[in-house]
Design a protein around this nucleic acid. Sequence first.
DNA 1: TATTGTTATACTCTATAACTATA
DNA 2: TATAGTTATAGAGTATAACAATA
Lengths: 148, 148
Amino acid sequence: MVDLAPSGVTLGPLDDIVGYLLRRAQIAVFEDFGRRFEALDLTPAQFSTLVVIAETPGLRQSDVAAALGVQPPNFVALINEMERRGLVERLRSGEDRRAYALRLSKAGAALLGRARDAQAEQEQAIRTLIGEPERRRLMQTLRRLSGI
Amino acid sequence: MVDLAPSGVTLGPLDDIVGYLLRRAQIAVFEDFGRRFEALDLTPAQFSTLVVIAETPGLRQSDVAAALGVQPPNFVALINEMERRGLVERLRSGEDRRAYALRLSKAGAALLGRARDAQAEQEQAIRTLIGEPERRRLMQTLRRLSGI
DNA sequence: TATTGTTATACTCTATAACTATA
DNA sequence: TATAGTTATAGAGTATAACAATA
């Protein structure tokens, strides 16, 4: 006969561990992203791909994949889908005919415009929650933490 | 004939998006965790499970799973593996014979001790990187961000 | 020989439906 | 009829090996 503990669970020490809190916050923010981007039908990976291509049109697939930390084989399916939807164009390079130069289509640029708006709204929600000075401070700290 | 852009990729606006920086920092911190916990053979999910059970011995599986945000079916395999390794004990409850009361074994408590040391070292590395006041401020902000 | 993009594949995480044994 | 734990399964995300075309 063993007794069960009453179900009032406490996370205890977990609530003072940066990695744990980082994970929980990341999940919450990504779920919020999912709700905001549902109508646009864009995942975080697709959104960041559009942003990088818009920033530097003509990049090779491998450069974009490396910048985003995606393995080249996994990036193929991601670009296939966005090309199928008419958001991204693959253009064979004249200099190196193995490589594609990636560009946004008109539709891709238009969708990215709407996506940036949705993204700005999320950033505004974060500002409302923690304040702008704290948001800037958080971003600075997160950049440093990436170098652990 | 299409020109490729020179491969100097810039992430552009992504570097000012909290969600993106959160994800990058979380990946970096979890990779660091992976290196530190390699010898202990513990994943973040296993470590947090040990912590919660140690904090409140006798909890049911479903309570621990809910506290950690793991679906009950996925939690079964996690507990199976830790029971197989002799770290966790499943004890049939007398009050409710459907439920298990979870406890750490001696070996589980010992391994958790070593894991807490490894975890404290990671926390110290973070202190070295960003300073203790900033670490406390970060944790507070992350807790608030989880409520987005 | 090396590199770009690709295919095939496998492994981890996560989510849902449906079962069993108890309540 | 409902709940605790379980099984089966399917979908993402991520990783590596090996190939064709081109350099």
